[in-house]
Design a protein around this nucleic acid. Sequence first.
DNA 1: CGGCCGATTATCT
DNA 2: GATAATCGGCCGG
Length: 198
Amino acid sequence: MSIIQRDFYSRPALAVARDLLGCRLVRTQSGTRLAGLILETEAYQGEEDLACHASAGKTPRTSVMYEEPGHAYVYFTYGMHWLLNAVTDGTGAPAAVLIRAILPVEGLAVMARNRPYQAMRSGWTDGPAKLTQALAINGAFNRLDLCDEVGELIIEHGKQLSDDWIEQTPRIGLNTVPEPWRSLPWRFTLRKGAINAH
DNA sequence: CGGCCGATTATCT
DNA sequence: GATAATCGGCCGG
């Protein structure tokens, strides 16, 4: 497996969101690899995107999106959840891709320990805050370099996937965001079976 | 399976 | 002071 390099992230969030599907998110926890295949992403692109946190301008929270692509943007929401994004585009152009779901493939026993109140089942990591719990990702990971070969959080290339397996729909949870942003099809999901099919 | 609702606090206005 | 890129439990069908 090869780690994804910075030039991959130095592109528009929409392209990165699409291409991250099927890639392998790898979190090394105390020497153990916890990994999952990325099944769902969302693009948040620019200050003009009123669903993007950067639409409020550069603040302490959003500043990482204005900096070098290929770093993690981890933020806290609903009083209890951490969500993981990859910073994209270029320095000065705030954008990021939210990772919303993974299929666990390595380190399942440790993931189970990270989620003590949830029995293992198929829908284990099918939400942006569920996957951060399973991988033990929190605010300490904000600004981390995803391109660091020996980092605790990286992403590896996966299979090339045909567009036939990818679905685009509106982003989730934008209840107070005005149109057209609320309805733009900037959420990317893998259809069922895409991982197993060649 | 689907809809409703309470939890809980960083961040911004 | 209001809001939030959500989750899990509880309800009814």
